[in-house]
Simulated scan of single mutants.
Amino acid sequence: MASSNKHVVFDVLIRPGLLGTLVDYEAFYEAIEARLGDQLRAQHIGARLFGYAWMEAGEKEYTYLSMSGHHVAFSDVLRALFYRTLWQAGLADPRRFATDDDRDFLLAAYRALRVRPGVAACFRTLHDAGYTVWALTSGDVARVADSIGVGKPAPAVYEHVLKKFPTEDLDAWFAAGHMWDASAARRSGFNGAWVSLWEKESCSDIFGDMDVVADSLPELADGIVAFKK
Score class of each variant (00 low, 15 high):
residue 108 A to K: 15
residue 180 W to E: 00
residue 46 G to V: 07
residue 55 M to H: 13
residue 221 A to C: 09
residue 21 T to L: 07
residue 30 E to V: 10
residue 156 A to S: 15
residue 218 P to E: 09
residue 178 H to Q: 09
residue 62 Y to I: 05
residue 125 T to N: 00
residue 83 Y to E: 08
residue 198 W to V: 08
residue 72 V to C: 07
residue 48 R to P: 00
residue 30 E to L: 11
residue 175 A to C: 11
residue 185 A to H: 12
residue 166 P to Q: 11
residue 42 A to R: 14
residue 226 A to D: 12
residue 109 A to M: 09
residue 98 A to W: 03
residue 183 S to C: 12
residue 13 L to A: 07
residue 177 G to N: 08
residue 1 M to W: 11
residue 87 W to M: 09
residue 10 F to V: 01
residue 45 I to P: 04
residue 7 H to G: 04
residue 1 M to G: 15
residue 206 I to F: 08
residue 79 R to I: 07
residue 190 F to Q: 09
residue 55 M to C: 09
residue 90 G to H: 05
residue 98 A to K: 03
residue 180 W to V: 01
residue 112 A to H: 13
residue 157 V to N: 10
residue 46 G to P: 01
residue 181 D to P: 00
residue 105 F to W: 13
residue 19 L to V: 00
residue 166 P to C: 11
residue 111 R to V: 10
residue 147 S to I: 02
residue 228 K to N: 12
residue 216 S to P: 01
residue 29 Y to S: 02
residue 198 W to R: 07
residue 30 E to W: 00
residue 105 F to G: 05
residue 82 F to L: 07
residue 224 I to C: 06
residue 136 L to N: 13
residue 122 C to V: 06
residue 173 W to Y: 08
residue 95 R to C: 08
residue 117 P to V: 10
residue 35 R to C: 06
residue 53 A to Y: 02
residue 196 S to K: 11
